[in-house]
Design a protein around this nucleic acid. Structure first.
Length: 205
DNA sequence: TAGGCCATCTGGTCCT
DNA sequence: AGGACCAGATGGCCTA
């Protein structure tokens, strides 16, 4: 018997670029998921393998997923020294996808849940990206982590509220903070210099 | 090399 | 029942 591997990467173009990096894993994974979800939508099945042994989408294919019989999908992600034998990220993702395809009913449900969870996390991450665009950062600053994004946003909102309450001109308020120190009443991790220095880059007019 | 950050998988819980 | 949400576990990548 032989493992079956679907070639989803016929289009080699890399159309997902984030912070200067092309995430081939993400691209391939998205293709896999899109394929599976589209198929489930069209046929009512969660995956082409969900009716394993009867009306398979690929009736001639002999599928072997012996790894899954022994380990959970999560546990097998880096099983049997794969990380040392596969260097190419795209090949690694293909390898994982091949090994993660379930055929038992529970595993099919679990696999579908994993896809939904990934999509949910993607939506959360896109919200973080949006939030990063709204918090003050230095032009040369590296990408904020999620936790730093949240903390900076909290501090930023607190400062904006104080500016509103003060009725002062925003720029002069920030200048004053730079000179005298920002009287931060919140417990935000981001301190005076962190926030006001960033705000000094903002064009207020 | 250790630590931080992240993606992913997973099982439990809650909600519709 | 199935999906959404959540938190823990795990492993990979990157940087100081």
């Amino acid at each position: 018997m032989e493992d079956m591997l679907f070639d989803f990467d016929q289009d080699d173009t890399t159309d997902i670029t984030l912070w200067g990096q092309v995430d081939q894993n993400f691209q391939f994974q998205s293709q896999v998921d899109t394929f599976l979800l589209d198929y489930s939508t069209a046929t009512g099945q969660i995956s082409p393998w969900s009716n394993f042994g009867s009306q398979s989408m690929f009736p001639d294919a002999q599928l072997t997923f012996t790894d899954l019989d022994v380990q959970s999908p999560g546990a097998d992600v880096c099983g049997e020294g794969e990380s040392s034998s596969i260097d190419d990220p795209l090949e690694l993702t293909k390898h994982r996808a091949r090994r993660l395809v379930p055929h038992q009913p529970y595993k099919v449900q679990r696999y579908a849940a994993n896809i939904r969870e990934r999509k949910r996390m993607l939506s959360i991450n896109s919200a973080f990206e949006e939030l990063r665009c709204h918090v003050p950062t230095f032009p040369y600053e590296k990408r904020l982590s999620k936790i730093d994004t949240l903390r900076l946003a909290i501090a930023y909102i607190a400062l904006l509220r104080e500016i509103l309450m003060s009725g002062c001109d925003p720029k002069s308020y920030v200048d004053e903070c730079m000179k005298n120190g920002y009287k931060n009443h919140t417990n935000a991790i981001w301190n005076t210099s962190d926030l006001t220095a960033r705000l000094s880059w903002i064009k207020w007019d």
